[in-house]
Write a protein that binds this DNA or RNA. Sequence first.
DNA 1: GATATGCATCAATTCTGGTGATAATCCATG
DNA 2: CATGGATTATCACCAGAATTGATGCATATC
Lengths: 295, 295
Amino acid sequence: MRPPVLDLRALQSLVAILDTASFTRAAEQLNYSQSAISMQIKRLEAELGTRLIERGSVLRPTRQGRQALGHAREMLRLNSELRQRVAESEVAGRVRLGMPADFAFYLPDTLTVFAERYPQVETEVRTELSDALVRSVAAGEIDLAIVTRQAHSPGGTRLRREPLKWVGAPGSAAHRQEPLPLALYPENTCEFRQAATRRLDAIGRAWRPAYVSQAFAALHSPVSAGLAVTVATPSMLGAHLEILDEDATGLPPLPEVDIAMHRRPGRLGYAARQLADLLVERLRTTGEPGASVTP
Amino acid sequence: MRPPVLDLRALQSLVAILDTASFTRAAEQLNYSQSAISMQIKRLEAELGTRLIERGSVLRPTRQGRQALGHAREMLRLNSELRQRVAESEVAGRVRLGMPADFAFYLPDTLTVFAERYPQVETEVRTELSDALVRSVAAGEIDLAIVTRQAHSPGGTRLRREPLKWVGAPGSAAHRQEPLPLALYPENTCEFRQAATRRLDAIGRAWRPAYVSQAFAALHSPVSAGLAVTVATPSMLGAHLEILDEDATGLPPLPEVDIAMHRRPGRLGYAARQLADLLVERLRTTGEPGASVTP
DNA sequence: GATATGCATCAATTCTGGTGATAATCCATG
DNA sequence: CATGGATTATCACCAGAATTGATGCATATC
């Protein structure tokens, strides 16, 4: 009738037993009597209808025990995380975060998660050029800055590196227009776009800033309508846009860009540290997809 | 002293309340009395030191309640999965799986997971050419087959599509040798390699089967030693090998390949269905990385 | 074979958590 | 503003589950 649930304390004991390889030590660790541990496991095994621990001179999990162990660990982790999250929603404070204008559309998910998790924290976002942000963060005017990596600006943690690509609407011929119509943030506001225009100049391809705006929507519309092209990294790409192949379009290849985080000097407040951790967690690229090799 | 754990039954009730928007209905659903539900939530809220449910004409979770809800759901999911996994390790039976020879190095992780999860199941792996496997599976001689997609062999579920790439050891010059030394499975054994040699022939590039073996190690060694090149998809790639850029090396571009699964006609046994699900889960490509768009 | 160590079991006790009845609340109506 | 209906909170009581400490049993150690 009701989905049967296991006793988390018993799972906790199971984990402790297999970690310490001893009922007795698990009991000490968890502040139970040895018999309590023994009974908990007995009940757990009865509930699951199978033996979980192979008793002997050395304790080993059975296959079922190994299955259970992984899930038990994860459940206990979630248990602590739940407690912490609930407790943290009391955390108050203030975080000042800086990012280039074009990141304002890259991070909102993460900022939403943060705002949800720490509803009492005031988050103040400032948008400036990357190098200005690096100075601001060094001066302690803001706590954190997400910037495109400046080769000459040391410090900061690299979060990810992504290729920069030409982007347009599927099927659009905007990239064949002469001069090339670009949707741009205002001059000097966006380094990606500076990189792009410099490469166009280098190959002698004419271009014009067909759409210039600080507002995201005002730039997105002409691109998805096929009236202009722009540049973005693959992970910034949405469903309505596609990467334009450089060979097929004759557009110049674009460099890779680094995305890095800078922290202001001194000890950050708790809220700022949590935001920093969250940004690292959500932006850091994951490892290589495959692990095996085939000839 | 001991990491405090929450009562899973209380979390179960929390979820039920927020799902049904009513203490009373949650009680009916879980076969508790209404007062039991009320007290469970009271205890849970006391334990966490915060209100989880905002009482009123309509019940709504507080921010803390929302935090808790997600984790609670996940913990309950793990709870059921744990029970099922433990129960499933009693599942016996037999599964006959077919795959091309070159997949024998693509799937072992998944097969290990399967063997661990269903230790009583006999798994029999047969390696043949893809089209032979499609016939075998249609004839019911094997239960499942993982094959490279045959345009003319309908049926089957496509699991993923990957580009085929030239692969060599980093820094090696093997790709500049004339004729091109290839590490190959025996002729007609591997369709990837047939695709490769046909493309070489098409552009008039001479090649020779420098290393031919059914054994993985015997092929892997010469490639990572820089003595030959071979072809693979990126996810088959290991740390010791790298993709050779087609433009830089003058090697012909290779097609994309589809990896598909065929099931034999008729109702599969439980074990076979589970293996099929696992293969789909582990091989199916995940969605696009990003969701937002930037101009 | 004696001893030590560690898990299982048992009986007694504690105490958690459920039930049913009832009180308190909240909202919708008249 | 009062009343009725529905929903949640509280209370007293009880059942049974979990813990404990003592003891039994098995296995390793010397």
